[in-house]
């Protein structure tokens, strides 16, 4: 599944940041997920549990913040928020669409237990 590889990349990156900054155990990871990034949030959550199982990330929390998508029609220049798999401009039915926002998937922040207080 597509989301499995993405979550694997997320956990490896968080682990690298945690080691480099000598942080305590992770409590929560917050991701920003663009509506046009091509991922299904529910699958991300399911894959997170699977990828985290048996690692130090098991039992940690995943929070997803959805970033609205925005596309521009190159024919009539109107901008709109695409819904579902619709590949046409709602104004003129044009097919030349350029995604202008909500394409990315970003690690926004991580919450860790402060080691000094442990």
């Amino acid at each position: 599944m597509h989301e499995m590889g993405l979550m694997d990349a997320v956990l490896r990156m968080v682990d690298r940041i945690r080691r480099e900054q000598q942080l305590g155990p992770v409590r929560k990871i917050t991701l920003e997920v663009g509506e046009l990034s091509g991922v299904v949030p529910r699958f991300l959550e399911e894959c997170y549990e699977a990828v985290a199982a048996g690692t130090p990330f098991e039992g940690t929390e995943l929070a997803l913040e959805i970033v609205p998508g925005l596309a521009r029609c190159e024919d009539c220049r109107s901008e709109f928020r695409p819904a579902g798999d619709v590949l046409r401009c709602p104004a003129c039915s044009g097919e030349k669409l350029t995604p202008i926002a909500g394409k990315d998937m970003t690690i926004k922040e991580i919450e860790v237990f402060d080691p000094e207080e442990q």
Binding site: L6, A9, V10, R12, M13, V14, R16, I17, Q21, L23, G24, R27, L31, D104, M105, T106, I107, K108, E109, I110, E111, V112, F113, D114, E116, E117, Q118
Partner: peptide
């Protein structure tokens, strides 16, 4: 009580 620290990352998941 555990103290929680928030680390801002703001990086693409593909950065590494």
């Amino acid at each position: 009580m555990d103290r929680i620290k928030i680390i801002e990352v703001k990086e693409s998941i593909f950065a590494d």
